[in-house]
Amino acid sequence: MNNLVYNEMLKIVRKKRLFVIAAIVAVLVALFTYAQFKQVKELQERLGTSDWRTQLQQQIIDAQNRLNSSSISEEWRKYLQIRLQQQQYYLEHDINPSAPGAPTFMRMFIENAIDLFLPLLVMVVAADLVSSEASGGTIKLLLTRPVKRGTILLSKYIALLLAISFILLTVALLSYLISGIVFGYHGWRLPLLTGFTINGEDLNTEGVHLLPQWKYVLIELGLAWYVAIVAGTLTFMLSVLMRSTAAVMGIMLAALISGAILSNMVSSWESAKYLFMVNLRLTDYISGTAPPIDGMTLGFSMTVLAVWGLLALAIAFIVFTKRDVY
């Protein structure tokens, strides 16, 4: 088994996939660091102060103004209201939720990457894991060895899990190291609030408690890893089912992007919550942002994702071990 996993890792590495991914992450992190830096600068100039309390107050006023305008959609209004209550809570308890620093940047980067960017990176590795062997014809050599088909697929899946872990580590390390150049490397102990629950219109602050940022980041990294594994497993199944890597990527891309769009408009379509792609933003449950559909919780989303992932894995193994290879 070790030998087989080694083979699969060798192929992933030699296709230069992981290297390309690391390069993409580095470029994007640098880009976002610069954007964030500019934003902070601009806000300071506009308000004429670098005091975060004034900034937060200004943000609250901005949000209130927007809420008062009539051209705002119902979903957006709800989202803004909840954000507003949260910001007021932070202000009352004298906590700066966006104190600059590499850990803060890292946390925000993960929160923003979890539903699209991260699954896309994983997809780049997973999409051609099996389909490239089929389209390149090497599957014929792979399957005529004295190894059971299930074992071969398992070795590929384990290699995928390793690659996903590597990608997450890369994202975490690069976002920390690169942003730290600008914002400094401090802020691991910054207390953050979590445990907000949302009941319809209201923010329930009963379960709210403080968490040091390092714990908070670890939890979010774990959730991002979970999401990445589910996205990777789904791509893996498509890769087994289809010969064309481009088709696998196309379908996965369509699903992920439709998820991002759907999240903004499905509040009235209740059963959409069983789709995997609207359940990807697990970190929102930690920071207390309103879920796209009422009644969705962290446990619910994780269960939905687990069911999709396990189903995909089962299909992949059944098809791969039974199928005729031409």
């Binding site: 030998n3 087989l4 080694y6 083979n7 060798l10 192929k11 030699r14 296709k15 390149g136 090497t138 050599l141 792979l142 060895r145 004295p146 190894v147």
Partner: peptide, 17 residues
């Protein structure tokens, strides 16, 4: 065979199986 590997690496790959 795997075009991005050398001939020897291809053989090693299959020998490991």
């Amino acid at each position: 065979l795997y075009p991005y590997l050398s001939g020897w690496e291809n053989l090693e790959h299959f020998a490991r199986m």
